[in-house]
Simulated assay, not measured.
Amino acid sequence: MSLRTTHSILSGPSLPLKSRLTPLAFQLQSRNRNGTTRTLASATPTPQPDPQPASPPLQSLTNAQKKYLESALRVNHAGELAATLIYTSQIPPIVKAHPHLRPLMKHMYDQEAGHFKTFNHLLAKHRIRPTAMYPIWYAASTLLGWGTGVMGREAAMACTEAVETEIGDHYNSQVKELLRWDDEAKARGETLGEDLQALIKDVRRIRDEELDHLDHAVGEDAKMARPYEVLNGVIRAGCRGAIWVTERV
């Protein structure tokens, strides 16, 4: 701090000044005309940090939203279990007859195994029970994979196309619902918690990977399967039924 700010209150000829700098103030001493000494203090303001914008409060989920999430995660978990079992059963006969498909089948299986791991973790983290239909879906998925695998490449790919069509729609509906929650929270000046924001990203990524599997299946002549219409219709109806049951049981 310069002495310029105190010049107007100092009078007379040049007077001896004594100064001492402390953490809170800069002090000046001067001698008055009557010989007394006075102390002039000019407080040095303590620098204050720029105020940080307040984070919006976290949204509290309603009971209906909590139930929706529990149901959705339970279905996702069961669906990814089924996918890994279908590929596990299909791979031996398909790769034996068509060795060039080994990398593709492994790629799709590895992604499904990653999806299953994600939802297995989320169920454990949030203490959500798996579906009570777990043993039945385990057996049905294994049988479906083995049956379409021995029917040949086209039938196996038709199975993938049918399953991924239903699962893709299911994941897409979840993304829309979670984004609706996000929009409503923002309108109230709130924000979804980190867990829900991460879940939206995970479901979007998994949905996109499932739809890639659908594209791969179509590219490998899924629609050439015989009887394609019957396979597609029965498998898709079975998936819808399994989703409906798993949401409730």
Rank of each mutant, 00 (worst) to 15 (best):
P53F: 05
A43N: 08
K66E: 14
P45D: 06
T37P: 00
T39P: 04
L69M: 10
S42T: 10
Q27F: 09
L40Y: 09
A54R: 14
A54G: 06
A25M: 02
A43H: 05
N34V: 06
G35D: 10
N34W: 09
N34Q: 10
Q59E: 11
A41F: 03
Q65R: 12
V75T: 11
P51A: 11
D50P: 00
S55R: 13
A72G: 01
Q52C: 02
R38P: 03
R31K: 14
T39K: 11
T39Y: 09
T39C: 06
L73A: 02
S71W: 00
K66S: 13
R33Q: 11
S30I: 07
N63D: 15
P51K: 04
T62K: 00
L69K: 00
K66A: 10
Q65P: 10
N63H: 14
A64K: 12
S71R: 00
K67V: 08
S55P: 06
S55W: 05
L28A: 02
N32F: 11
G35K: 05
R74G: 02
L61K: 01
Q52S: 04
K66R: 15
Q48T: 11
V75E: 02
D50Q: 10
Q27G: 04
L61P: 01
V75F: 01
P45L: 07
P51N: 03
K67M: 12
N34D: 15
R38A: 12
L28W: 02
R33M: 06
S55I: 07
N34A: 14
L58V: 13
Q65T: 12
K66Y: 10
A54K: 14
A72E: 00
S55D: 09
R74P: 00
F26G: 00
A43K: 11
D50M: 09
D50H: 05
E70A: 10
E70L: 07
N34E: 10
N63K: 15
L61Q: 02
N32V: 07
Q29T: 12
K67D: 13
T62R: 00
F26Y: 09
Q52M: 04
G35R: 05
P56W: 04
Q27K: 13
K66L: 15
K67Y: 04
Q48E: 06
R31Q: 13
G35N: 12
L61M: 08
T39R: 12
S30P: 05
P51L: 06
L61D: 01
P53V: 07
Q59I: 06
T44K: 01
L69H: 01
A25F: 02
T37M: 07
A43W: 06
S60R: 15
T39N: 09
S60W: 05
S42G: 10
Y68L: 10
T36W: 08
T39I: 11
N63P: 04
S55M: 07
F26H: 05
A64F: 12
S60P: 08
R74D: 01
A64R: 10
Q52P: 00
P45T: 07
A54E: 13
P51V: 05
Q29F: 13
P56D: 03
L40K: 03
Y68C: 07
Y68N: 04
N32E: 14
R38T: 14
K66N: 14
